[in-house]
């Protein structure tokens, strides 16, 4: 999944996968923090694949 989306131009930081057991709340907090930081570092204007409203002339 990740490979093709990135192949077609999605920035690498916009899709994440992880594996956390229900007992690992510390890992959960770690991962959330890490992902949030990573996404914050990306340019918010550079979102791809967002559906735009049709332009009306």
């Amino acid at each position: 999944m990740k490979n093709l989306l990135e192949h077609t131009g999605l920035e690498p930081g916009r899709l994440h996968f992880s594996w956390i057991s229900s007992a690992e709340s510390t890992k959960f907090v770690d991962v959330v923090t890490k992902i949030t930081d990573e996404v914050k570092a990306l340019d918010p204007a550079n979102k791809k694949y967002v559906k735009t409203e049709p332009k009306v002339d």
Partner: peptide, 8 residues
């Protein structure tokens, strides 16, 4: 990433 996006 940007070039890829434009390519497709």
């Amino acid at each position: 990433a940007d070039e890829k996006f434009n390519y497709f």
